[in-house]
Design a binder for these strands. Structure first.
Lengths: 170, 170
DNA sequence: AGAGTTATGTTGGTCGGCCAAGTAATCCGA
DNA sequence: TCGGATTACTTGGCCGACCAACATAACTCT
């Protein structure tokens, strides 16, 4: 009896409850939740393409830029180098990506999307558009713009911390 | 010449460039980025407590609710059961959490925070507050409220997809 | 030229998180 | 009563992502 009522509740349409953890940081909490849901949704939409959530962004960069130095990719995606290494290993194994040593710098390697991967290009863009639309359903253009603006501000706030330690600088 | 100019840019202070992948879904892209940065920031702030990003929310629920059925926790956090199982195993090993079988239902187990963990309570809340403030620095109360509102809308949009398949339902 | 510093990637380990299967207990209906 | 759902949790596998430590190769500076 205690907890039966909600099982009927088909969705989370009513989010009014205070989930406990939300007190000390309601927005942080919302960000976590949205982040997770968004990633899961992306994964689901991408599933048909055989890509996993996260890989699509890398591939898009590659489709966009052609052959790129791995270090460029790392900077562009702002991910940890080791993360990119492993993603590339998997994508290479999956035949989506090719790597070859950079003749100009024997440390570096050049990465590019394979021809095979180009077949996915469209599907991935479609999935991405779909995701965007599902994410923003019911938001007016103004709201979308505002959300974009606020997210950018938040990103700028969070960025420095990731970059180094802090940049209270002044 | 296609992509050389940007390599000099030290940080993300200027986000104006179009990173390629952002075209088809600018907000999805922003969400991914913010999500990652936010999680990293949380991890950094939590580091001192010995908790990893994600665990704090679970602990908060536990501190808040006392002994809880694991299934309740799963519903509250809206995570995959297996995720919670593994988190609890690690937290248990770390001494933050205790589990015992539920006498009323031999399948279930009851979870609660250990006394030791309560020492972290304050530090975690502090970290969480800190995170919230760093995240929202420079946003007016109105902007914060608007962001919260928009995130909730987005969450509601994304939720149904995770729940089942879709709920286009009228 | 040789030593020290920086840049590029890689490996190994740990986490959160998901999915797919599987086990065990409870519930429910014929 | 008894056999089929349903519920509760676990296991194994895989991914993205991090960090720390490392090996190479390239620069730089005396």
């Amino acid at each position: 009896m205690t907890t039966d009522a909600r099982s009927q509740d088909p969705l989370c349409t009513e989010l009014t409850r205070t989930p406990g953890a939300a007190r000390g940081g309601p927005i942080s909490h919302a960000v976590s939740r949205v982040a997770r849901l968004h990633r899961v949704a992306a994964g689901r939409l991408l599933r048909a393409t055989g890509l996993y959530a996260g890989q699509e962004i890398l591939m898009m960069h590659l489709w966009d830029a052609g052959a790129v130095r791995q270090s460029e990719l790392i900077k562009a995606l702002e991910l940890d180098p080791s993360t990119v290494t492993k993603m590339l290993q998997r994508l290479e194994q999956a035949g989506q990506v090719r790597r070859r040593p950079d003749p100009a710098d024997r440390r570096a390697s050049l990465v590019e999307a394979t021809e095979a991967s180009c077949a996915l290009h469209e599907a991935v863009e479609a999935a991405w558009n779909d995701l965007e639309e599902k994410t923003l359903a019911g938001l007016t253009p103004q709201e979308r713009a505002e959300l974009a603006r606020l997210l950018n501000k938040v990103e700028a706030n969070l960025c420095p911390m990731a970059a180094e330690e802090d940049c209270p600088g002044a």
